[in-house]
Design a protein around this nucleic acid. Structure first.
Lengths: 278, 278
DNA sequence: ATTGGCTTGCAAGATTACTTGCATAGCGTT
DNA sequence: AACGCTATGCAAGTAATCTTGCAAGCCAAT
């Protein structure tokens, strides 16, 4: 039985100090797992005896048992990214994959600092309302355009992947109207044609969603919905598409969930949600 | 200064028992970080006094200081995937992005159980030798084909992305010879035309590299080089391209590193390696 | 205002973990 | 064979951590 399950079982009999201690455990499980009863108690200004009693109340034989359970739940057993990142500096060539995976995980871990579910859902709703979705990407981001185009069409959405330059491009957006929307990708720098495209979308009243990296906030004009997070790799080096692809996947999953046609509201787990999709 | 750096500084003066203790720290940092000097010592059958002396030899004031340094390096401070995975069961819809990120990280963490640097480098060498690289993907993997095609062309490689069906496809591979190679993608099931394509490559002596998911080992015919790992998401649900994309990125980086034309051997860090690429 | 119950601090004692002086065993050299 | 040196175990002492009996303070009810 997990720590939190035990907490739930006795929740109605916890004293105010015990409730504060539990909050500390939830907020900083690592530090609690590695510290002492005194450490935990001092965080909320109570005596370590209170922490010891809490452990007993939760059903553990003593505080050490309580702390061992926290360690078991919150301190992972294997973590290649951390192992590499924290101990070795830049790896030798022998650690190529390890280093790559570590960087990807680090970037993914940071994603939620930049994008939250609310933003994802808001953008999803915009795309769901659209009659037609225009997709614009240049450079390596074209891979993401291919991916999201396929996902959206699989959901029954009408999409147009904007290709070509100048006149070709202009012709493709001629049919854009207020009931459409545009999804744009921008990473290293603002893509050629980004400005004119966004301005056109604005002028016809079409909503815009942009998925971007660190350059996101400086794009002009700003999109109606900007979903951005720094990508793995340093600014002037090789950068991967893992983070923006996670944003795309989150967007698509959110659309699938919000889509009334699919009657998804009754589903309870993401697994079940995903089962009905793709 | 990290634990391993300190270890390196005194490596030549470590006793046999101390060397064994260090190996335990490297192999199981979590357990050492959470345990006692006695725990560590008993792992190799020595007295805890030896562990205490090792800590002093490494420059820490005592064993507690040594253990605190191990905790600092190996026990992560924030870990969204673990936090969610270990405490809550399947999340409510409010945790969409958290769950997605957690699954991606879990899958990435497992990647190295299936693919190692040796395999990546061997495949990279095959592609470096090729005069022309054929790229075959169907379905969502087309996004990966777009990506790797761009990366390879950016490296100056001659590529052909195989499109179309039947006769169109046959015409495109007409020029394939023993000095070429083919990169194939296969995920949910063996793609149509996979077998004929691979057989043709074999018959003209072209080397093959396949990037795959769980279906990898059952592909017929087998590729000369199979790089596969399970993707994020369950077998019958929404699966993402994060893991195969990491394999692609690893392959491309390895090619960049092995490419004699770029004179990469003198570079020491992955960062520097990446700087010269893209 | 009084009383009862509960929460939490205090402090003594218990337990656990670690350090260090000393001694022994083993190994290598002469 | 003898000797010297090093590594490591032992055990006593130290330090850290935790537990629990007792008591004080607070709060709610009467």
């Amino acid at each position: 039985m997990s720590v939190l399950e035990r907490v739930k079982d006795v929740a109605d009999s916890l004293t105010p100090a015990e409730q504060l201690l539990i909050k500390q455990v939830i907020a900083s499980p690592r530090d609690i797992a590695l510290g002492t009863a005194s450490d935990l108690a001092h965080r909320i200004g109570v005596h370590e005896a209170t922490a010891s009693r809490l452990a007993k109340k939760l059903g553990y034989p003593n505080y050490a048992g309580f702390r061992a359970a926290i360690q078991e739940e919150f301190i992972v057993r294997t973590d290649p990214a951390t192992r590499v990142r924290n101990t070795l500096q830049q790896t030798s060539t022998a650690g190529l994959l390890t280093d790559l995976v570590g960087r990807e995980m680090e970037a993914l871990a940071g994603l939620e600092s930049y994008v939250d579910d609310g933003k994802i859902i808001a953008a999803a709703r915009v795309l769901l309302k659209a009659r037609r979705i225009y997709i614009f990407a240049r450079g390596n981001a074209e891979a993401l355009a291919v991916l999201i185009d396929r996902r959206l069409r699989r959901m029954g959405r009408d999409t147009v992947v904007l290709e070509g330059e100048g006149r070709d491009l202009a012709e493709q957006v001629l049919g854009m109207s207020a009931s459409d929307s545009i999804v744009g990708f921008a990473f290293r720098r603002q893509p050629t044609h980004y400005g004119p495209l966004m301005n056109h979308a604005r002028s016809v009243g079409a909503a815009s969603v942009v998925i971007s990296g660190s350059v996101g906030p400086s794009l002009v004009p700003a999109a109606d919905h900007l979903l951005f997070a720094p990508r793995a790799g340093s600014q002037d080096a090789f950068q991967t598409l893992t983070v923006p692809m996670a944003i795309c996947n989150g967007l698509v999953l959110s659309m699938a969930k919000e889509d009334p046609k699919a009657s998804l509201q009754h589903l309870e787990t993401l697994g079940q949600l995903i089962d009905t999709f793709d």
